[in-house]
Design a protein around this nucleic acid. Structure first.
Ligand SMILES: [Zn+2]
Ligand SMILES: [Zn+2]
Ligand SMILES: [Zn+2]
Ligand SMILES: [Zn+2]
Lengths: 165, 165
DNA sequence: ACCTCACTTGTCATGTGATTTCATATCAGA
DNA sequence: TCTGATATGAAATCACATGACAAGTGAGGT
């Protein structure tokens, strides 16, 4: 498991402290207006995700929760993660069996991810696969698409640089 | 886990016996010309995948292998599956942690999948996500895409019909 | 025919990811 | 204050995947 080091969104440096604060404040606000309950455990998990800006496995999150005084059984992490995913504050990366904070919370969107196979950094982009050839194929086949997972694996700028030597 | 019943490719009925025979013959031929070793276990796993025409988990395959006299430890199934995936005879469905036989073996292609959330039927279509907006985003971000996973979840024609009542 | 090296297989053990279950606690609204 | 819905705590279990090592098999060189 890659340890978190650099702060990045979309592989670019940024004011991460402000980034975290903004994300949490935004989540608080949206939960308040929409009537969701952003409990301490859920808030802490979101904070962990935003803070690392990487895909974190449920058990990695669980370890960090334990260190912070929360429960230490798997459901603690999974329940919080399910809440965050369900309401669009986080996404699951199927390819890694791991989770990332959403980069565009609040806005309805079909995310696509770029995942570095070396350092596990994840950037979120927009996708519209159902509008391309896949959508046409699905209509032709009589298949109704409800959700689409798009995950590109490759090398992030930093690891690409590293690889060149 | 959905039990296999209907024979389908791309959700359509077809001559499944011929379909299986053709797939295995094709695999034999390609292994012969390219120097791969399609051993009994590998062949059997491919046969199971083609036969079910659905996503099968490694342990489901393992059960069937055991019943047929092969080894019964997980690595038996995983090794065969890894071989098949590596050489393009099968694909892994990340969303389901399961495997399907490739619908277009031999031809180099970027697969996209349509997965029925009710019956687990899987149809394989072509995709080219790296040529659309995602490709542009990746280039702009300096990310080098090596492989892309595209998996659409929804309702297959049969289950859609069922759902209408 | 024999050796050798690369690859394949069998098996046990372990690691990693996710859910079920049931009891208890908390909160919002009647 | 009562009540039903939602959230937590905790134990157990299930599901998916790999590591490690010994033993077997096959093709190519001598
Ligand atoms: Zn940030
Ligand atoms: Zn990287
Ligand atoms: Zn078929
Ligand atoms: Zn279906």
């Amino acid at each position: 498991m890659a340890t978190e080091n650099a702060a990045l969104v979309g592989f670019a440096q940024h004011d991460h402290a402000a980034c975290i604060k903004r994300a949490l404040a935004g989540a608080e606000a949206r939960c308040a207006t929409e009537g969701f309950r952003l409990t301490p455990a859920r808030r802490k998990v979101l904070e962990l995700l935003v803070q690392s800006h990487r895909a974190l496995g449920a058990y990695a999150i669980l370890d960090r929760l334990r260190d912070t005084g929360f429960g230490s059984q798997p459901p603690v992490a999974y329940r919080a993660l399910n809440f965050l995913v369900k309401h669009g504050f986080a996404h699951k990366i199927e390819r890694l069996n791991a989770f990332v904070a959403c980069a565009h919370p609040g806005i309805s969107h079909a995310p696509a991810f770029m995942i570095c196979r070396i350092c596990n950094a994840v950037a979120e982009a927009q996708s519209a696969p159902a509008e391309g050839g896949l959508g046409a194929t699905a209509r032709a086949a009589g298949f109704r698409i409800e959700k689409t997972v798009v995950e590109a694996e490759g090398l992030c700028p930093a690891c690409l640089e590293q690889a060149r030597g």
